[in-house]
Design a protein around this nucleic acid. Structure first.
Lengths: 210, 210, 210, 210
DNA sequence: GATGAATGAGAGTTCATTCAT
DNA sequence: CATGAATGAACTCTCATTCAT
């Protein structure tokens, strides 16, 4: 019926993509205002100023809309962070840049992040299992970070710690910060970032007693 | 209609309390299986092996059930942690015991914690604002931790850092760990706890370069 | 199970009757406050300060309770009016006393009348047909009035009109007054009664042009 | 969501209006058959041959449907009576035409009037107070009649009586007649109207002894 | 006699989805 | 492409009634 980009379908037209982004933007606003459970298609359509049917036309269903919302923001985040991390010289600098840029991105996209969090935590597959928060699903997200830590250890930059555990702690800290960004409008990201960087800097230093 | 304990109502009977706990337990199971959004009263009643109306009889509504679930587990956690933290000697030991006991509690109550997390993140007041995750609402939760850090700084145990920011990072780390506990059945809490304790021990030490 | 007075059952004990009156009184209060539709057994029991089951014990069901409420007030009204009407001398005086005493009774029992009205208009048999407001059901209520008017015509007191139609108009006027009594707390019954009596006095006079 | 006519919303489409009328008609039928209390949306939808959700789609809720039912019939009645009353010459003729046309309208719309009566007497606001039968709410209904009587008195057509009380008696008589129209299929409106007109004609005549 | 607990049906409402226009 | 209309299932909640204690 509808042109698809993935998988193997015809390329989506420009106008088609614009509509999808418009709808996703409306969904983000609605979710961050009334929460995932109350974010009905009717409300999203109203917010976007379009008819309910349009959403069904452009997305295979509510779930696809929500999944797209997540993917889109995730990609945006990666596109923002990757060049910064790569530009940093040395594993320590890369590590701290990873932390810093991630927190900055969250700060700059609070509403989007709020919506993303709600969706990630709530969206489920038809069989009831989580769509995004599965163990396997996490791997691609933290794999680059683990690799970064391993490289730094191999080259003697970092001390002796379990890179997998450390990566998970980092991610949890960042994800927790995302929640805080949503709930606290006055949250001072700069100070928080400084403290977090200092903390993980100390924890990954060579020569730290185990 | 129904006897109430809080506030000012008659005391609830033993059997009444048992039923409430049974219903809450069923809610916990259902939520951790299908998620908050799909945890309908019908499903919860079915799981508990009772009729739908029973829930309405024992609780003022779905929201009260969910709120009770949160309060109950939160109180359980506090009851578990408080004596351990108090028994520890010295602020550093208290701090590390706080971290350790909290993670242990999460580990020992994974299903409950999973459900609690879903409820806390999703439950809203009738006006649409979050029921539990407001800024003000957080204060009572981290206030004791902030106090603990301040005391340790005053007495020279801890170094120079912002106790409020540090407390928030600690809480985010722990809450993140809760999410992990839910998603990863094989999660090794012991190792994770060691790493977290080492990390925050370093970060709060006196003499850490700022 | 339960002792019955009607039909043919054992006589109800004094305490039994007291309970029934207490429950009916509570029902009257509740109905006149929240209306028939919202007058649940739970609310009535709460108002009476008893448990819900008590009502089921003393009445065969909600419908019997409501029916009893109607009958009880109707009998009270008849007991109040009958001696007054009989004491009046002459058909004209009897007729005006009927009007006057009926309106007085309504005035003195506004809450009861309000409840009765709601019940009469709403209570239905299981098949959906009205329990009280059927054509046949009305006959016993206005039959004495028709008879009174006929006697007065035969004896030359009243003029020439259809006694059945006149009786119906009288009843409608009184029933309408009942509604008014409920809705208007400041309603001046004395003045209303005077005007109504004057009106029907003129309308039933001998020699009125047809 | 749905186009609205009142207040300030977009104009309702023709088809929209037709659906609303169809649903109201079904509600009227159901109410006059099983009564207000048993007139559930399910039954009304079934009678209209539509799905339950359609009612919610076209009306803001059950209460709005019921309120619309009342308003619609009330407006119809006013539209029927007004030109007839205005066309009558002289206050006496206007007064009798008011009575006559009102009773005729009731006669011609028995089922509708039956439903209207049930709704007016039962519909309540969320706080429990009656929606239509309040004292203030009555004013607009009888105000024109009071005015008519006052004009007739000023111009010497009518005798000396309290026009407010008289108007109330007239309304109660008519409303009572409505109830009768519902319950008595064989009710002879012509005869009833004659008798009522004769009665009120006599009661309002100049020179009637007070 | 009286109670609290439980039932199960049915209430109004919301919602994702489908479809003719 | 877009819309408004309609569906039917699922939701929370209320209720009259029953029953063991």
């Amino acid at each position: 019926m509808r042109p698809e980009n993935e998988p193997g379908g015809r390329r989506r037209s420009f106008i088609e993509e614009a509509r999808r982004r418009q709808i996703i933007a409306a969904a983000v606003e609605v979710i961050s205002e009334v929460g995932y459970a109350s974010a009905s298609l009717a409300r999203i359509a109203k917010r976007a100023g379009i008819s309910k049917g349009v959403i069904s036309y452009h997305f295979d269903g509510k779930d696809e809309l929500m999944a797209e919302l997540v993917v889109q923001l995730y990609v945006s985040g990666a596109e923002f962070m990757a060049p910064l991390v790569e530009a940093a010289e040395g594993w320590r600098a890369k590590f701290l840049t990873y932390l810093e840029s991630n927190l900055q991105f969250i700060d700059a996209n609070r509403t989007y992040v709020a919506a993303l969090t709600e969706v990630v935590l709530n969206l489920r597959k038809p069989d009831g299992t989580p769509r995004f928060t599965s163990v396997d699903g996490e791997e691609p997200v933290i794999a680059p970070l683990i690799e970064l830590l391993r490289e730094g250890q191999a080259d003697g930059t970092f001390g002796d710690f379990d890179p997998v555990v450390m990566a998970k702690i980092v991610r949890d800290t960042i994800d927790g910060a995302a929640g805080r960004a949503i709930r606290e409008p006055d949250w001072d990201v700069g100070r928080y970032t400084d403290e977090v960087c200092r903390l993980f800097d100390l924890a990954t230093r060579k020569g730290s007693a185990r």
